[in-house]
Design a protein around this nucleic acid. Structure first.
Lengths: 203, 203
DNA sequence: GGGTTTGCGATACGATCGCAACGGAAAACG
DNA sequence: CGTTTTCCGTTGCGATCGTATCGCAAACCC
């Protein structure tokens, strides 16, 4: 057969280049040739690994989601074995917010994809499922009444904070304060369960 | 001089066409010729009223913002002279959320522009100022402690709800419930001022 | 080692892009 | 009524787009 090439690895390298282009110049600057140049390869090679541009986009979108997933589980792991629900939530959400230059780049890509998929509904199925799962998980951590809606609201607040951070409308410190204030409210009105902790279990 | 043409009106007509294209096919489908075709005019005419594409985009962005502003003041006016702070907030935010097909179209445009300006920071100055003003206004309506952060959080929640609505991750009913639940929380823990009302005054 | 399969660079094609330039029609002004 | 100024449709240019296709080299199978 052919040369042994790690296909998945090459595809990821190309997706990385795509994300760099998208983060710096926006998604509309993403073209086969730009991505190829950014990746330091020929345009033909990009075409070899992605038969169509849309396939490349979809793959990159998956990579972004996967990276975020990893970031979260990493952060949670570093939190120790039995964090309080509030610390756990704060860590998760702070991890997902574009608070530094690195995560900002990712955030710009994610935002661009959001606008991209808003016109191509089928591409967002996985995203939808992920969100639903997240809502369920967070709801279980909240001591307040109506935890389902509170959890969904917390996620929405996170998303909005991300958007405003990228738009430069809120500073990172502001965003952190807003998040903390919101968590205060979520954990305030409830019966005191402040001693409780969460046991991390593998997904 | 020349034929008397209402320049501003023509520009708005073109911007309307732009928004229709952007809402249906995304911002990357917005080109001089597409917009011209959608508006039923020649490409040359579009060029006549906007020397560059970027000028057209910026103008359209302004129109979107202006429309939202009008929608809000309209809704608030229909609310009567002395609504409760909570009703006022609910109305404002529901007005800004993409809950029906019409506002969804606007929301898609706004989201596309958000991604657009994320890479062109200078274009978002007006947006930033508007948000700041809004935070101040909302903060004055909130009875809870830390009203500044709560207000900013409420706006972020709204933005996130909008994004999730456009992505089809939350349904309109869900979004309304989430918003109400959040408002419950904001107006719950406070000293009872439920009898108070807000006096609407002109901006 | 010949044949086959794959990796990948090169090139071409038709479409579309933003933009510039030209030209005529029409209206206001002298 | 002629001039001038604006309006705007047409056309063309160069660049770039996504995609199809070809060709060759390298590696694997037998």
């Amino acid at each position: 057969m052919p040369k042994k090439v790690d296909r998945q690895k090459r595809r990821t390298q190309i997706a990385d280049a795509l994300m760099r282009v998208a983060a710096e110049q926006g998604l509309e600057a993403v073209s086969l040739r730009h991505v190829a140049a950014e990746a330091g390869v020929s345009a033909g090679m990009v075409q070899h690994y992605f038969r169509t541009k849309d396939e490349m986009m979809t793959f990159a979108l998956d990579v972004v989601r996967e990276r975020n997933q990893i970031r979260v589980t990493d952060a949670v792991t570093h939190l120790g074995a039995a964090p309080s629900p509030r610390d756990l939530l704060q860590t998760i959400i702070r991890t997902l917010l574009p608070l530094d230059e690195v995560t900002r780049a990712d955030g710009r890509v994610a935002l661009a994809f959001l606008a991209y998929t808003a016109v191509r509904p089928p591409a967002s199925a996985a995203l939808r499922e992920e969100t639903e799962q997240m809502v369920g998980f967070i709801a279980g951590l909240l001591p307040c009444p109506d935890p389902e809606n509170a959890a969904a609201g917390l996620l929405a607040l996170m998303e909005g904070l991300g958007v405003y951070l990228l738009g430069g409308q809120y500073t990172p410190e502001q965003a952190r304060r807003i998040l903390d204030s919101h968590l205060d409210r979520l954990f305030a009105a409830a019966p005191d369960r402040s001693g409780e902790t969460v046991t991390i279990r593998p997904a």
